[in-house]
Structure formats: C-alpha cells, structure tokens
C-alpha cells in the first residue's frame, strides 16, 4: 500500500482543470519530485500497467504541498487517458525529475517564445529566468484565442507579455515567429531566446534568430521509453552528433538541431498511435 503523504496518495490527481478544448492541467501528488525538480525537467509516466511511458515537462511544483503540475494536450490514447482522469484517481507510475535543468543565469534581456501546449513548458523557464534577474519578454501563441493557455500566469512573471493568435482572434494576428522577427528588426537587444512548442515553430524561430546569431535554446519532445539514457529512442542529431534527449537534453542549441530528423522520428508510430486511439475511443463509446 502506498503511503498517504501530505496532499494525497503518491501519484494521486489532486486537481484537474480543462485549460482549453483539449489542453488539460493536472496537479499530481509527488512529494520528492516536487522538492527536487528544477525548471526544464520532466517526468515520465504510465497511466496504468498496460500503458506506455510518455515524457511530460513539469510546469510547476509546490514543495510544501508535495505536488507537481503537468499540462498536456490530447493527441493519442495515453493523453486521452490522462485527460479522462478525475481528482482522487491515481497514475500507476511516475518517474522523475528527469533531464538536465535549464541553464539559468542572468543573461540580460531574454525572449521566451511558447506555442500551443509548449506555453506550459515555457512557464517554469520564464519564472526561473525572471528570478535570476533577467528582463524577460514572453511571446505566446495559439491557433485561436480559446486555445491560449497560462496568459495571466505568464503575465505575472514576465516583464512584458505579447500574445499572438494565428487567426487574429486575440492579440497580434499572426505567428509568434513574426512577433520575434519584429523585435529583432526594431533592433531590440536580445541576449538569448528560448523557443518551446511544435517542431515547425521551433524551427522557424531558429531561422529568425540565426542571421544575428542570437543564442537560441529549444526544448525537444522526442519519443522516449525508459528516459534514463538506456534505450536511445529519443536520439536527435545536434551539430552532426547523435545525442539523447532524455539525458543530454531536453534543451539544446536550436541552431544545431536537425529538425527534419526530429520531425520524421516523431512520426515513427503514427499508424499505431492512430489505431490505438481509435480502439480506445470505440471501447469508451461501447460502454
């Protein structure tokens, strides 16, 4: 029997909130991880004994209450299962904190760009950079206003927050990359850029910062299994060298990342993932 800890049983869902149509926030009891984790680190979880192991970045933690916060977007069966959990339910396995923490220093003025569910991953980095004395400009984007997450939370920890939506329903009409391009074109001093979001977004951001060689850090979301450096499923090519996202990353110099390879490797199980999700949806509706 798992010990009852402050805040709940180990791996118990303490709080659940729908942030948008298919983006969910989970607050989970995990006292040691809550105490140990640093910005940029992630956990690997298995919803049940038959589940797969998936990595999710730790968005926030409360060491006092012994909880961590995860934000996820429903994309396949595992994320659908997670989104169906209710407070009081328990996740079978949760391992962490994993990966290297974000390198945090006072760089000067930094720009953090988050897209889609990646805004959740950006949050702890923005917070840590701000605490380290940086002036932080945060740019967040979503397809449409209803899909935008953590706006208020990020406003509180950023010196400036710019919102962009692809359809113009809120904030700047356009992509986050265009907002960044605009800052660069206006000659704004930028000492470092962090880009976290869908692979195409990170790739474009890197293209935007490359001409002026603004150091750009990306956080990669490769497929993982054990996530302890044992299997190499998450290998990426950085500066022509093979690196493991789980133990060498998850953050890398974006200008050196082979995004083509990452995109292709992320699609490796598209067919199976579709099949798995369809089967799950059928079974759900069948009940």
């Amino acid at each position: 029997m798992r010990k009852k800890k402050r805040g709940g049983f180990l791996n118990e869902i303490i709080e659940k909130q729908d942030l948008s149509e298919n983006i969910v926030k989970l607050v989970i009891s995990s006292p040691t991880v809550a105490k140990k984790r640093k910005a940029g680190q992630f956990v690997v979880l298995m919803v049940d004994e038959r589940g797969e192991r998936i990595p999710l970045t730790i968005v926030d933690s409360d060491p006092e209450k012994g909880t961590i916060t995860l934000i996820l977007q429903v994309a396949g069966k595992t994320t659908a299962l997670l989104a169906a959990l209710k407070p009081g339910d328990r996740i079978e396995h949760l391992l962490g904190p994993l990966g290297n923490p974000t390198e945090i220093e006072n760089f000067g003025q930094v720009v953090c760009v988050g897209g889609g569910v990646g805004v959740g991953v950006a949050y702890p980095i923005v917070k840590a950079l701000k605490n380290a004395g940086n002036r932080v400009v945060t740019i967040i984007g979503a397809r449409t206003k209803a899909m935008l997450i953590l706006e208020e939370e990020l406003r509180q920890v950023s010196d400036k927050l710019i919102v962009a939506t692809d359809d113009g329903s809120y904030g700047v009409h356009g992509f986050v990359s265009a907002v960044l391009q605009d800052l660069i074109d206006r000659g704004e001093r930028i000492d470092r850029v962090y880009a976290i979001g869908p692979v195409p977004m990170m790739r474009v951001i890197c293209n935007v910062t490359k001409p002026k060689a603004v150091p750009t850090i990306v956080s990669l979301n490769a497929i993982m299994v054990d996530a302890t450096g044992m299997c190499g499923a998450c290998r990426v090519s950085v500066g022509g060298k093979t690196r493991f996202t789980c133990v060498d990353g998850p953050e890398f110099d974006g200008h050196d990342v082979d995004f083509d390879l990452l995109t292709k490797r992320l699609r490796m199980y598209d067919d199976q993932e579709k099949r798995s999700l369809e089967k799950y949806r059928c079974e759900c509706h069948g009940n």
Binding site: R50, V225, M268, Q272, S276
Partner: peptide, 14 residues
C-alpha cells in the same frame, strides 16, 4: 512494455 501484445498494451514496436 509488452509491445508484442500491442494494441492490448499501449507501447508500439515496428
């Protein structure tokens, strides 16, 4: 991960 029993288990394998 028992991928040989996919999709009964969730982990895929080629």
């Amino acid at each position: 991960m028992k991928a040989y029993r996919f999709p009964e288990y969730d982990t895929p394998i080629a």
